[in-house]
Design a protein around this nucleic acid. Structure first.
Lengths: 240, 240
DNA sequence: ACCACTGAGGTGGTCCGACCACTACGCATG
DNA sequence: CATGCGTAGTGGTCGGACCACCTCAGTGGT
């Protein structure tokens, strides 16, 4: 595409659509620090006139930045810049997991295996007593019920707690997206029908033991095996 | 054929905004397979009347799904579903890298270190002669010039070629986002001013040697060290 | 002096209708 | 048969109108 990025910060020649230009300009304002996280933007009407476009086009631009987690519109109040933290910006990652299929699912699970194993290893080294208690809470709750829906909830919370304990919010947010509810539900529907409940419980117990022992390498192996089990099963499902 | 959503997890008769509902409905259509990748959607006007909303609101919904890489609007032709591949859906990942700052940058680089090292290890085991030639091409081109802009280009292409050789398109797409042009340019501006050119060249050479030797473990270590160097430098920059 | 209520103004949310810019495809033309 | 052109249909843009909601100053009571 076009290359030159001179000093002209707001230099926006006749690019693509008017709306796309507005998106880039607002994004640039934030990138250059002219709009701090949490700041309130001018009204839609003012923004539109400032950039010389109609309110309709400006609204499309705002909507685009809203779904990306960059802006937040509060009805009756105004438009605000989000905190631009990992959780805000990576929320869209869930869409990828929800709409991927076929080979893409396996690749996604492979990425999760890599990140989850590392995150679990980090957690083993850094986890605090409070965080460990949180992990244990979901572990026992998971083992105390037979309702698949509830198991899934605590399963997600179990791994989420570990992700938080790893101390890298960005990684935790990515893992959160890779483990979105619909994604897991879709994959597990068939997997757990093959009596994988018990195996899952054993694997979770192994991860927990490694965390208690503060043994990063064992934790890494246990987490990799845990995700790898599902990954391998899914791989066979795509080989009819 | 629409209206009431039968039993469901989020049984909410009247959700949020009309536009958000339209976004969810279109997303659901794709998720349920009612819209195949590459398929053409009805016109904006038809879609709007089908869902009982105005064309303006429908356009906002379409715009939202467009920036997410789910839909693609072609002026004068129609609206189409993308191929829903990794590259389409993960394009938004670059926005995260562009707008993150402070501690988030280090976390992002940590994620990249984990994924890049694994990808490089996989590449060492799987890379083909053609792919290896591609890697070498950018390596030599990178060493043959002093233009920072050109070096950056070949640097990106160098790692991109390795990511492709790893055989996981999803991981390659994520790494592509984590290494977006503006992201790298921002971080390297200061880094390379401290005479890190030579060190970067040595690290790239080490990665290349490991690929030629088809030694995954050495490749993993070399890649981790390479990214880790930048990561550590950036970490010190945030401790004033 | 304090607090609860109320009203008006401002904001985002939705809708409508018109026109423009571009593409696609069939028809007339050579 | 190949070429060119015109038309119908599509997304893109615009302006205005009205609605739903939040905010806060002003009011009235205690």
């Amino acid at each position: 595409m076009d290359e030159s990025l001179p000093e002209g910060t707001t230099a926006a020649p006749q690019k693509g659509t008017v709306t796309q230009r507005a998106i880039d300009q607002i994004k640039a304002m934030i990138g250059e620090g002219r709009l701090e996280p949490g700041a309130r933007l001018p009204t839609e009407r003012d923004l539109a006139s400032q950039l010389g476009i109609s309110r309709s086009s400006m609204r499309e631009a705002i909507r685009a930045l809203t779904v990306l987690g960059v802006l937040e519109a509060r009805h009756g109040s105004g438009i605000y810049v989000t905190q631009l933290e990992a959780g805000d910006l990576l929320e869209t990652f869930g869409v990828v997991a929800d709409l991927s299929r076929g080979p893409g699912l396996v690749e996604l699970l492979e990425v999760r295996r890599i990140l989850e194993s590392t995150a679990t290893a980090l957690a083993a080294a850094r986890i605090t007593p409070d965080q460990l208690a949180e992990v244990e809470k979901h572990l026992t709750a998971m083992n105390a019920t037979d309702d698949p829906e509830e198991i899934l909830s605590h399963d997600l919370a179990f791994h989420r707690a570990i992700g938080v304990a790893a101390g890298n919010d960005t990684m935790a947010a990515i893992l959160e997206g890779l483990s979105s509810r619909t994604f897991r539900a879709r994959v597990w529907r068939g997997y757990q029908e093959e009596g994988a409940f018990e195996r899952t419980r054993r694997e979770h117990a192994a991860i927990h033991r490694a965390l208690v022992a503060r043994d990063p390498e064992t934790a890494r192996a246990a987490a990799a095996a845990h995700v790898g089990e599902v990954e391998q099963w899914l791989r066979t499902q795509l080989q009819p």
